[in-house]
Amino acid sequence: MIIEPMVFFIVAACFAFFVLFSLLRIGLGPTVGDRVVGLDTLNTLVVASMIVLGAAFDQVVFVDVAIIYALLSFVGTLYVARYLEGELQ
């Protein structure tokens, strides 16, 4: 017997709840670095929930978007890190 799609929706809802935590850190964070850490966590959570939603809706497109999102958010994180180091003026 195979699992119901409802379970995947519940997992995705949990991830959405955790995204709120990282949004709180982005809002509170005393330094720019803390905000970037929050953003990084948010990206990972979004990728994970996209994978789960792909299984829930039986749509492969979600997972394709998740791959591109993971790679692009990595480039974004590197860019902000470079900026923090002061190498980009």
Partner: peptide, 13 residues
Amino acid sequence: TGSHAIARAAYRS
């Protein structure tokens, strides 16, 4: 890799 980048940038800033 992203977390190395953040850690190093945070230290250097």
